[in-house]
Design a protein around this nucleic acid. Structure first.
Length: 490
RNA sequence: CGGGGUGUAGCGUAGCCCGGUAUCGCGCCUGCUUUGGGAGCAGGAGGUCGUCAGUUCGAAUCUGGCCACCCCGACCA
């Protein structure tokens, strides 16, 4: 039925690329690696922001905004941080252009900056430089700040939403009096992310910690949530870092304790980005197009009228608009599409492509029977129900769709999680099935790197609350106390 | 950033090898008929052929630089 898309089975990657563009979520821009997020896609991002922002506020955080441009010297203050980001920083070197002889525009060499500026790839340095002046005593702590911003990382290979040179995100940066409290914050925010992703995006996630090798540049511990996409590849959906005193020391941020002496503060940072859009798309959508969970869809219900002539439309609209106002009263977002330049069949296909969770069809035949037709996007089923009480029915249906999508994704994830006890078995699972592979690992970076070289699989995380289990590393045969999750990843 | 591919109207394409200002479909505009799964007929508009330079009397076509996108690697949320 899909006239628009290649199927997932034919070419998963192409399916994703086409879907993003054809469902009107985003476009490539004129600038390499950068995207234009279109209104339909941005509406979904706004919903994500709205819910996350509330969750941040509910856990005591406040929003602020720090500058896009960061003095280059700030970067060199935390050694591993520079090392991690140096290779992908865009640098501002001049502050003025001028006309050349040919009528073109060139950089004015006389306007060279004394100190070059970096376009933020993340804001730890500028924020910790600022926190130095905000924090003097234990009474200033904890400091719980979040910012919604754009960042730039000069990526070699980009894909819409999954990896773009510029992306939107939020970054939380907190300061605490004790290591214990900072670790608790790190874990709390990971849980916020996990709850958000599961409840609103209907994507089940594995909560875990990263290996030393995969850790954020400058962190002592990186926590993450990992989700499995339909093609069996893993996608990191959010990270939360315990930064220890690394940034406090680099930027000399100390506080007077209750007892008097000065101590360095403890830090965390945590973020999710527009990459979540990629996760959302890949987790639920099918060969007909996007499938959106009702809780995150910008339009939850669309009503398509079917009629003959102007008089017909008027009669149908009367009933349709009544339903619209009833749904709105229940805080359900609904669109009545009475455009007469497109026919119903065209609209059906379009809204399927765009993933609207529920479609209501209302024709003159229904008027006579007092019914409407309700179609759900998640399983493409349709039924005819009485127009009386339709608003209640739809409210329940939206909930049902939300749950169904989560359960479907949960089932897929658990069915795609396999246990391997030997390297041969490990490789076989990766090449034949994909998904998460739970296996013993000796804990060394060398082994992790070797496995990555040979299979392209990386350790996605060491799951939290992992049960300890004696075993042998699938690669080196050395003793191991727990299994970790491997996967091919985005 | 290395290897391979692509770029012609809003979208998808023919033409390119063998130089002579561009084909078809969808979409768009107007009108009429239609409307329960991507409507039909009639008429119409829309292109400096990615971009810049070169070769030539003449370039979508040949040559080179650049830009963007896709695939495969190295790097990464």
């Amino acid at each position: 039925m899909s006239k628009e898309l290649v199927t997932r089975a034919e070419d998963y990657s192409k399916w994703y690329n086409e879907l993003v563009v054809k469902a009107d979520l985003a476009d490539h821009s004129a600038v390499r690696g950068c995207m234009v997020i279109k209104p339909y896609g941005y509406g979904i991002w706004e919903n994500m922001q709205k819910h996350l922002d509330k969750m941040f506020k509910d856990t005591g955080h406040v929003n602020a905004y720090f500058p896009l441009l960061i003095p280059k010297s700030f970067f060199s203050k935390e050694a591993s941080h520079v090392e991690g980001f140096a290779k992908e920083c865009a640098v501002v070197t001049h502050y003025r252009l001028k006309n050349d002889e040919k009528g073109g525009i060139i950089v004015d060499e006389d306007a060279k900056l004394e100190e070059e500026l970096i376009i933020r790839p993340t804001s730890e340095t500028i924020i910790w430089n600022t926190y130095k002046s905000w924090i003097q005593s234990y009474r200033d702590l904890p400091l719980l700040v979040n910012q919604w911003a754009n960042v730039v990382r000069w990526e070699m290979r980009t894909r819409l939403f999954l990896r773009t040179a510029e992306f939107l995100w939020q970054e939380g940066h907190t300061a605490h009096a004790t290591a214990k409290e900072a670790v608790e914050e790190t874990e709390k925010m990971l849980e916020v992310y996990a709850n958000f992703t599961e409840e609103f995006l209907a994507i089940p996630v594995i909560r875990g910690v990263k290996t030393a090798n995969e850790r954020f540049a400058g962190a002592l511990e990186t926590y993450c949530i990992e989700a499995l996409m339909q093609d069996g590849k893993a996608l990191q959906c959010g990270t939360s870092h315990f930064l220890g005193q690394n940034f406090a020391k680099a930027f000399d941020v100390k506080f007077a304790t209750k007892e008097g002496p000065l101590e360095y503060v403890w830090a965390t940072s945590w973020g999710v980005s527009t990459r979540l859009m990629g996760a959302l798309i890949m987790a639920h959508s099918d060969d007909n197009g996007l499938v959106l969970p009702p809780k995150i869809a910008s339009t939850q219900v669309v009503i398509v009228p079917i009629y003959k002539g102007e008089e017909g439309l008027k009669k149908v609209s009367e009933v349709a608009l009544d339903l619209v106002s009833k749904l709105k009263a229940k805080d359900i977002s609904v669109k009545y599409d009475d455009r007469d330049n497109q026919r119903p069949g065209w609209k059906f296909a379009k809204y399927e492509l765009k993933g609207i969770p529920v479609r209501v069809t209302l024709g003159e035949r229904d008027l006579a029977n007092g019914t409407i037709e309700v179609a759900r996007r998640d399983n493409l089923s349709k039924e005819t129900i009485s127009v009386n009480g339709a608003d209640n029915y739809i409210e329940i249906l939206l909930n049902d769709i939300q749950n169904n999508l989560f359960n479907k994704a949960l089932r897929r994830t658990s069915e795609s999680t396999h246990v391997a006890d030997s390297y041969d078995e490990f490789k076989k699972i990766l090449s034949e099935k994909g998904g998460f592979v739970s296996a013993h690992w000796d804990g060394t970076t060398e082994t992790e790197e070797k496995i990555k070289e040979e299979t392209k699989a990386t350790i996605r995380c060491i799951p939290l609350n992992n049960k300890s289990e004696e075993g042998k590393c699938i690669y080196s045969g050395k003793p191991s106390k727990q299994r970790v999750l491997f996967a091919l990843a985005y």
